[in-house]
Design a protein around this nucleic acid. Structure first.
Length: 596
RNA sequence: GCGCCUGUAGUUCAACUGGAUAGAACACCGGCCUUCGAAGCCGGGGGUUGCGGGUUCAAGUCCUGCCAGGCGCGCCA
């Protein structure tokens, strides 16, 4: 996975910059006084500490310079500290461990984050990092041959959250679903429907093993029959007479497709096919909408074959010697771009491969003006990455304009027990069933709780449980609790006075308040980091931590106190917390209820 | 056989992208409701980061060799 050196523009970033410049100044002074000699300008790295005992920020410069400077790190650290310029933001500086320089900041340093959050509201955490650059995120793109299952659900949730994250980071994001409405799978769908339809016509034949077995096919056939009656009734006697029933599974389908096309004619065959396609697609769309996942474009594979795109790109590939003919087929020399072997573009029978239209499709993304494309694929497609990247390179793009994220499979558990699924018989748990059982919020949250390359174990019992076992409720509870405090406030006859709060931020001096403030201040960095590294789980973990800080604070201190300044300032901190929880949950597509 | 991914507490996972004593949750043990929601809080035990080498002041993180699991290796999509 791509890792990024992330420039940040938040309050924390400014603090880091400040400390960095202090260190640099100290080093320059040391060099002037010839206390140390440096060959080249050192890279000063400031990082947040994990442990509050180590202060707020730490610098490792003394350790990385010790060797070239020829002295021991702790001694060097002390020299650096002695030459640090004065700063009103620093309370204390200390040497620790093997030579870390630890910075302890003044208590008031984070207090104004409350003002930032409450004035920026839903905009808090957003940045302009992407500078409006446009990105196309393509995800789900499940074949429209049946309802979405729980594996697709993960891709849907993941893609939606990554899109939200990138928007928050200042990119212009479009979400796209690529509809594989062309090719053999569609034909198999058509004949599967046709056979069920013929059963309704009173003319049943054995159903092929590799046809689509799901009951939704029967439902589609029923609608077709209701609308068109016997219009598509054909006799399969001729096919059966040729010994069709005993053929190999794949040839069985091919013969059936050929026979049906011949008997029905392309127009009627297409009508049968489209009746299934449209119905299934409508179902998928509704399913995703109810899951809070929407797309800007639904891009049809068929529409590609109607244009000249493929011919255009094939011509370019040939022109540059990247395509050649062999055994009657047209091949792409992908091995020249790091793929294991060359790939067929046009089959011996003249039909383009799926890969060929995929090249056209991916190039269309850049033709449409996107500077970057992100694909989310099921992990079983990883062998396909090399050839697609090879293709866009051969067509003049750098490989990094396309990022492909592999989403590992999800397996379902009911407590300890694994829920068995078999795609072969068509008995898999659908996304719709999952949503019905655990609800949208839990499903969305659980799906993005793990890094995408991590296999997900989805525990239905846990997702359903309304207890502290369940991180979704834990975070939502913090939000509801804050809302409840405000209700209590009104009942007690108080009104929140923000002016008074902002004038008294200095009162936020308790340990728990300081901790909460520091956590809140991290939010913009977390958003940007998880956006640029495509790691939504960081938001979930962060929100859990934030909720924990709040619950702890809540349990230790009373907010609705008599003193106006203290009451209002504590309420402002609570409101700021509520705002950040809302913003974070919004990115995840999880609701923030006012009461539970 | 080759390629990609994964391996961290009993379990499910983090680890600020090379930093300090590897952290959470669940489970287990013990405390906290007359006070803004106990769907909460506080404390405790629990680890040879799959194994072995190497690079580095510093390795769960980088390199390398094994071991185990998953996925892929079509003129299917």
């Amino acid at each position: 996975m791509a890792r990024y050196n992330v420039p940040l523009f938040s309050r924390l970033y400014q603090l880091k910059q400040h400390l960095e410049s202090l260190i640099t100044q100290a080093l320059e002074k040391l060099q002037e006084q010839q206390e140390i000699t440096m060959v080249e300008k050192p890279f000063v790295h400031i990082e947040r500490t994990r442990d509050t005992r180590h202060g707020d920020f730490a610098c490792n410069i003394a350790m990385s310079l010790a060797k070239t400077a020829g002295c021991n790190p702790r001694q060097l650290a002390s020299q650096i500290i002695n030459h640090l310029p004065a700063s009103d933001r620093i309370k204390n500086v200390a040497i620790a461990g093997p030579g870390f320089i630890n910075f302890f900041l003044n208590d008031n340093i984070y207090q104004s984050i409350v003002t930032d959050i409450l004035t920026q509201a839903s905009g808090f955490g957003r940045s302009e990092h992407g500078q409006g650059q446009s990105i196309l995120v393509e995800f789900v793109s499940a074949n429209p041959t049946g309802p979405l299952h729980i594996g697709h659900g993960r891709g849907a949730a993941y893609g939606a959250v990554i899109s939200n994250l990138l928007e928050s980071a200042g990119y212009k994001v479009d979400r796209e679903y690529y509809i594989n409405d062309a090719g053999r799978q569609m034909d198999i769908l058509a004949v599967s429907i046709l056979l069920r339809y013929l059963e309704l016509c009173g003319d049943p034949v054995p159903f092929p093993e590799k046809g689509y077995q799901g009951s939704y096919i029967v439902a589609i056939a029923r609608d077709l029959y209701a609308e068109h009656g016997m219009k598509f009734h054909i006799s399969l006697d001729g096919l059966v007479a040729q010994g069709w029933i005993d053929r190999e599974p794949e040839t069985q389908l091919d013969e059936l497709i050929r026979y049906a096309l011949d008997k029905l004619g392309t127009a009627d065959f297409r009508t049968v096919l489209d009746s299934g396609l449209n119905q299934i697609l409508a179902g998928i769309r509704k399913d995703l909408e109810e899951f809070g996942v929407t797309f800007d474009t639904w891009f049809s594979e068929r529409s590609l074959s109607e244009g000249q795109g493929l011919q255009h790109y094939l011509a370019i590939l040939k022109q540059h010697g990247h395509a050649y003919e062999d055994n009657g087929a047209l091949w792409f020399r992908s091995s020249a771009f790091g793929d294991e072997k060359d790939r067929v573009l046009i089959r011996e029978n003249g039909q383009p491969t799926y890969f060929a239209s995929d090249i056209t499709y991916h190039m269309s993304k850049f033709e449409r003006g996107y500077t970057k494309a992100i694909d989310l694929w099921g992990a079983d497609h990883h062998g396909y990455i090399a050839r697609v990247k090879a293709a866009i390179q051969a067509l003049g793009k750098t490989p990094d304009v396309l990022d492909i994220l592999l989403v590992q499979f999800a397996s379902l558990y009911r407590g300890k027990e694994k829920v068995q699924m078999s795609t072969r018989s068509g008995e898999f748990v659908t996304l719709e069933q999952l949503r019905a059982e655990v609800g949208k919020d839990a499903a969305r949250f659980f799906y993005v709780m793990r890094r995408c390359e991590q296999h997900l174990e989805f525990d239905l019992e846990l997702a359903k449980s309304q207890s502290n076992d369940n991180p979704v409720y834990y975070i939502q509870y913090a939000h509801a609790r804050i809302c409840s405090v405000l209700r209590q406030m009104r009942e007690k006859g108080y009104a929140y006075n923000q002016e008074e709060a902002f004038a008294n931020l200095g009162l936020l001096s308790e340990v728990h308040e300081q901790r909460l403030l520091a956590t809140l201040a991290r939010y913009p960095d977390i958003v940007q980091l998880s956006a640029l590294s495509y790691e939504p789980h960081q938001i979930g973990y962060y929100l859990r931590e934030l909720a924990n800080d709040f619950h702890t604070y809540y349990n230790t201190h009373q907010f609705l106190v008599e003193s106006g300044p203290l009451r209002n300032v504590r309420l402002s901190l609570s409101l700021a917390t509520r705002q950040v929880i809302r913003n974070g949950l919004a990115i995840l597509g999880v609701s923030a209820p006012e009461e539970m």
